[in-house]
Design a protein around this nucleic acid. Structure first.
Length: 570
RNA sequence: CGGGACGUAGCGCAGCUUGGCAGCGCGCCUGCUUUGGGAGCAGGAGGUCGCGGGUUCAAAUCCCGCCGUCCCGACCA
């Protein structure tokens, strides 16, 4: 491609709305342009990178027997009503957009489990046709509450999504592992350091699932990582290695009686800690009590150590003001666990509070707290679990080593769905080996392709611009002719070399513009093509071309007649 | 959806406090000179000052409403 003809405009300054490096550089280098908040056009250079990323994914999925197809972006809303997920629209769990059209109401597809389930079940009738894994590259729509960071969080995104269909759970797990391994190879080829972590399944559902995390300073997620045993989990799903103290064991036996204290106007933990500070109390001596509804909608009290943030399981939600009115035993701001079971409130607790105490906690009376509360004497716990947020330095739940918190971007998410969709979508059955009817065991696998552009750019750039790994670069070679306007020899040599490289199958971007050398160098650095070739009058007189690596800065001179062989071979 | 900031030429910004010719840098066009790390000189084009209303002789500037954009939070591939 001749740069004089390429639809690209480089910017010396980034737009004010670009915050992170990948966003600034992709815009400055002319790869993308914003159309609306969270909605971007891919200009020719950006589209080439997108296609390169897709090709890597395509090759690795095809290599393990997956088949590409393309499903509609527009879904009849009836499909979503059948799966029950239409009820999640408008909620935070599954922000979706709908379109009223002549044919009825359609959903701008946020994900494709419903469509793929009815599509495949219409074609597959026998266990003999499985295992089967299909995938597509398709635009997904999310009614994103807050688009940000350029391509990292958008309202319209390009995703590679795969779906496996198997005869039973064991076969599904095998298919899952196959795609999982292919994903690892994809990230390897993209030059990304990825860590698969245990995760929450969210709106997609299912049992086992993993997120593929790329550590990054601009990440919006954190995962917990144990260096000694390899345990890795999203903080949303991570647990702490805190053993429950056996009943009656450890702790003070000299605990005194429970004493109530008048603590007006101190509903928050920090306020109360300050009140009791003169008695030597710290936040760790408090029970933090949260009134919630569990996933089944039962009123529940969650207890965590006062120095910890609570982390609720998915599907649980905090009380709102009206909920306190209907549960008078829980006094907002002064909640305590004592006697709650008598009022039909279930009490669950983080293992971090399993020592007897004494504890300081709310007295279930307005403006009152109590000291000296002892576990199993003054309050009871119905179930133990991990309800506190994990922080760096906590014990690993598997080996007890210290875990570390890593900031990261979620690049992909894989799920073992089992029967979640096949048992609710009509007709999703096949004839099993025994002649009976059976339900598909499914898996689904999503990778944000447009997001990956940003992730790769985040990991591969410097202060001068982008530096693409060869696997995803829009062009392999950036050929710059210096001073061709005043030296016909340079122009002719560059034209000839350009033609030879194309003939040899090398993807080359040829800067044939009549601009100063400084501009050409600066643009070459900004665009980030892996190899830069420079032809100038000085080198040409000696029969050499300058070769330079964008990533390493390494430079050498190549004899003019050996350039094509060197680049085509490498 | 809560909190904050911003909106003036393609991009970056000044002007607003104290109402009075719409500006600067980069980019773009023409010509000449220049040419190894974002050249120089000369000339030129380009604006619904986000939108609507109000105050005023007069509004980019003051007031009200709306829209948009970004940041923090909540939520998510």
């Amino acid at each position: 491609m001749r740069m004089s003809r390429l639809l690209v405009r480089t910017l010396r300054e980034a737009p004010a709305d670009a915050e992170v490096a990948s966003h600034q550089l992709l815009v400055r280098a002319g790869y993308i342009r914003r159309l609306a908040s969270g909605v971007y056009t891919f200009l020719p250079l950006g589209l080439r990178v997108l296609h390169r990323v897709e090709q890597v994914i395509r090759e690795e999925l095809d290599a393990v027997g997956c088949q590409e197809l393309l499903m509609p972006a527009l879904h009849p809303i009836e499909l979503w009503e059948q799966s029950g997920r239409a009820a999640m629209f408008g909620s935070d769990a599954l922000p979706a957009m709908t379109v009223e059209a002549r044919g009825g109401t359609f959903v701008l597809g946020p994900t494709h489990e419903e469509v793929v389930t009815v599509t495949v079940s219409a074609e597959v009738e026998s266990y003999r046709q499985m295992p089967l894994t299909v995938y597509q590259f398709q635009v997904k729509f999310r009614d994103e509450a807050r688009p940000r960071f350029g391509l990292l969080r958008t309202r319209e995104l390009i995703m590679a999504d795969a779906y496996s269909f198997d005869v039973d759970k064991e076969a599904m797990q095998s298919s899952y592992q196959t795609v999982f391994d292919a994903y690892l190879r994809i990230f390897e080829r993209l030059g990304l350091h990825v860590t698969p972590v245990e995760a929450e399944s969210g709106a997609i559902g299912g049992d086992v699932n993993h997120e593929f995390m790329v550590p990054s300073a601009v990440g919006e997620d954190h995962f917990v990582s144990c260096a000694s045993c390899g345990y890795a989990a999203n903080v949303e799903a991570a647990t702490r290695g805190v053993a429950r103290v056996a009943a009656g064991g450890g702790g003070p036996t000299s605990a005194g009686p429970v004493v109530e204290h008048h603590t007006p106007g101190r509903p928050g933990i920090t306020d109360v800690v300050a009140y009791f500070a003169d008695q030597g109390a710290t936040a760790a001596d408090f029970l933090k009590s949260l009134a919630v509804f569990d996933a089944d909608g039962r009123p529940t009290l969650v207890l965590v150590p006062g120095d910890r943030e609570a982390r609720l399981p998915s599907g649980w939600r905090l009380f709102e003001d009206a909920d306190f009115d209907s549960n008078p035993s829980l006094v907002k701001g002064y909640i305590g666990p004592s006697g709650q079971q008598e009022h039909g409130i279930r009490v669950v607790a983080d293992t971090g509070i399993s020592r007897p105490g004494p504890w300081i906690t709310g007295a279930n009376r307005p403006d009152h707290h109590m000291t000296g509360a002892v576990l199993d004497r003054d309050f009871n716990v119905d179930a133990w679990g991990s309800f506190a947020e994990v922080v760096s330095g906590d014990a690993c739940p598997h080996c007890g080593g210290a875990v570390e918190l890593v900031r990261s971007v979620e690049a992909a998410h894989t799920f073992q769905l089992g029967h979640k969709y096949s048992e609710v979508m009509p007709g999703s059955t096949f004839v099993a080996a025994d002649g009976g009817e059976a339900t598909f065991s499914m898996g689904c696998y999503g990778m944000g392709v447009s997001r990956l552009l940003a992730v790769v750019a985040e990991e591969h750039h410097d202060e001068r611009g982008l530096a693409w790994p060869p696997e995803v670069a829009p062009y392999q070679v950036h050929l710059a002719a210096l001073g061709a306007g005043r030296s016909p020899e340079v122009g002719a040599a560059a034209d000839q070399l350009y033609g030879q490289l194309i003939a040899a199958g090398v993807e080359v971007l040829y800067d044939d513009r009549d601009v100063s050398p400084g501009v050409k160098f600066a643009d070459a650095d900004l665009l980030g093509t892996p190899v830069r070739l420079v032809i100038g009058a000085k080198g040409l007189a000696r029969g050499v071309v300058e070769w330079r690596s964008r990533a390493t800065g390494e430079e050498r001179e190549l004899p003019m007649d050996g350039v094509v062989a060197t680049l085509a071979g490498g």
